[in-house]
Amino acid sequence: MITITHYLVLSLVLFTLGVVGMVIRRNFITLLMCVELIINAATINFIAFSRQAGDVTGQVFAVFLITIAAAEAAIGLGIIVALVRLKQTVQLDQANVMRG
């Protein structure tokens, strides 16, 4: 029997892996992928609760979430292109122009 708890634990593991990736990696592209992992974890939660409550509203919010994720990817990749043009790197600790 697969209950909502299974989905929530899976979503939590996915979220944690995303956070771990954001902490231990220095590659901007990988960081953006970790953000996608985190957003996917949130989407799994929305769908699980939608199924649990028998209400389609959760699925509508999943649509919004996917839209925001797409916008985030477009902006982030635009920043990557600008960063590579400026510094010839995607390593985040090389982008220290604003360090005080």
Partner: peptide, 10 residues
Amino acid sequence: YLAAADPAAL
């Protein structure tokens, strides 16, 4: 947690 709703509600 409550029991899952009937999927027909979706």
